[in-house]
Amino acid sequence: MIEVLEPGLSTTVQDTGRYGHYHIGMPPSGAMDQYAHTVANYVVGNDEDAATLEMTYAGPDLKFQEDAVVAATGADMEPKRNGEPIPMWTAVQVEAGDVLSFEFATEGVRSYLSVAGGIDVPEVMESRSTYTLIGIGGHEGRDLEEGDELPVGSANGNATVGAAVDDGHVPDYANNDTISVVMGLCDYRLTDEGREEFLGTQWKISDEADRVGCRLTGPDIEGMFEEREQPFGAGPDPTNVVDLGYPVGSIQMAGQPIILMRDAVTGGGYATVGTVTSIDRDMLAQARTHNEITFEAVDVEEALEARASQDEQLELIRATFLE
């Protein structure tokens, strides 16, 4: 059992996500930075689908009531065990009674804490991910609060205390201001100039940007759209389309561009103009409030290559720790 002494700004239980229910409006939820979540699990000998804690900007203080092997990955929140600094991206032994504490993220936004055996909250629709909008998954469907107690699953004994991820596999969260996007979906709604402006703009990440959506501020988007006679059922606004499904990572043009993240709405009537590549969604999860980002259009082959190369890297890390 892990007792929450201080919850931090927003700490939730997350895993790889809840799948198979998008058609009834259920977004995947799950760790915003899947890479950091997955590596955290491998380091302590877990499979990638074990649940970790996702911490945001300000980390929690946690008291362990049992011995455990843990690892912190993602944004560096200067983790400490009983006040003594412990390394990131490394399997660390904690003993019953130890307090693990986290400070503020100075680069990146989100840290992940894995525990050998995983955070063993009950599954809802085959996932432990927290989805706060309807209050399901994780610990009581919500952000952690002081006094919460989290059960830990039984460890498989694969963890090697002290084992660390190679520096080459640790992302640099200070340089994540260019985000790759595969343009498409409803981008035919943009004029050529509108598309150019969209891709040429430095968009600022708003302070509301969260697990639901990365809301961006910048120039007026209405002017980027092609005038047309609206099709039946779409509604009169030029940014409206007949309500359709939104991919996770797609950019919805609703007054401002909003990149739909893992707790987002699954569909709606605003034109989407492209989709952030799966690996850059992880980078976006670490992009800080008020930072400026630029979209770089890539073709699908480039996006697939980048994904395949990250998958290889993850397989390499998995093999190091789990075999």
Binding site: L9, S10, T56, Y57, A58, D143, E208, D210, T289
Partner: peptide, 8 residues
Amino acid sequence: IGVMKNFH
């Protein structure tokens, strides 16, 4: 400080 609809 308010960020991501949370307050610190």
